[in-house]
């Protein structure tokens, strides 16, 4: 489906109606999810109200990983078929992913401080998400360092794919590293069993984040299609308007119609 959508016209046909739908889902799920998370969901018998941080922390962590997967897939498509929309998807998804990752880390800290008694634990999950954050930053700065757009697209695609392959290896390594001195005092904030009364608002908040990301991506890519049309129109009409400017500046320009094709 993703390669099918790489055709800009088909993409626009899909995204024009899909973006508002995603927006509506985002608004609805937030309207339902936030009060549920903040008021109606039960307090944890051990963690009290601090468990409410979970409803913004866990979806952000999900998005941190999900967005990087999207970037890796888009990187593959961008690298193999050189689809401009796939590259644009990486360009817009990378900063969003970095923001979600930062949110996951910061809200995790805000949850960890009252629960674990520390802002940061060298827990396997935290550590691998931190590495993921650096991978996002690398993608963003690599794009910023390269002037040529086509070249940047290929290089970022390579970096995205290699980074994605490394994420599970990083996870594996920090798991082993952490298992060697697991501190017993740590209260597992997210136990294996989570009651339905908490799972439902969590699922809805997760859906809200997902729909929000979908809306933002579709909207940004629709704008990207427009930007590319503008560039294409400018490259078609650009020389003519430039001649007009030259004519104003120097009368001789009008006598060189051949220059208009330049």
């Amino acid at each position: 489906m993703i390669t099918w959508l790489a055709n800009p016209e088909r993409f626009v046909k899909f995204a024009r109606p899909a973006a508002p739908i995603a927006a509506i889902i985002t608004v609805l799920t937030f309207i339902i999810g936030i009060p549920w998370a903040l008021v109606f969901s039960p307090e944890d018998f051990r963690q009290g109200a601090s468990v409410r941080i979970m409803y913004v922390h866990v979806p952000a962590a999900w998005m941190a990983m999900f967005v990087y997967t999207i970037i890796a897939v888009a990187g593959f498509i961008s690298f193999v078929w050189r689809h401009v929309l796939a590259d644009a998807a990486i360009r817009y998804a990378a900063p969003m992913g970095a923001i979600f990752t930062a949110l996951a880390l910061v809200t995790g800290s805000l949850w960890g401080q009252p629960m674990w008694g520390t802002w940061w634990a060298w827990d396997a999950r935290l550590t691998s998400v931190l590495v993921l954050f650096f991978l996002y930053l690398g993608l963003i700065s690599l794009r910023g360092a390269i002037g040529n757009e086509t070249r940047a697209a290929r290089l970022v695609a390579i970096a995205a794919m290699v980074g994605w392959i490394n994420v599970p290896i990083v996870k594996f390594s920090v798991d082993i590293w952490n298992s060697l001195h697991q501190s017993a005092s740590v209260i597992r904030a997210d136990g294996p069993t989570i009651h339905a009364s908490m799972l439902w608002p969590l699922a809805i908040m997760g859906l809200a984040y997902m729909a929000f990301f979908a809306w933002a991506m579709l909207t940004a890519l629709l704008a990207e299609v427009d930007v590319r049309r503008v560039k294409a129109l400018d490259s078609k009409t650009g020389p003519a308007s430039r001649i007009r400017i030259e004519t104003n500046a120097s009368p001789g320009g009008a006598f060189k119609p051949g220059a208009a094709n330049g």
């Binding site: 650096f134 930053l137 690398g138 290896i169 594996f172 390594s173 920090v174 082993i176």
Partner: peptide, 19 residues
Amino acid sequence: LVALLATPLTAPTLIFGIL
């Protein structure tokens, strides 16, 4: 920039090196 791109990829090597 080189360090920013390469260092995250070397995290497993560093971890297993120290271990």
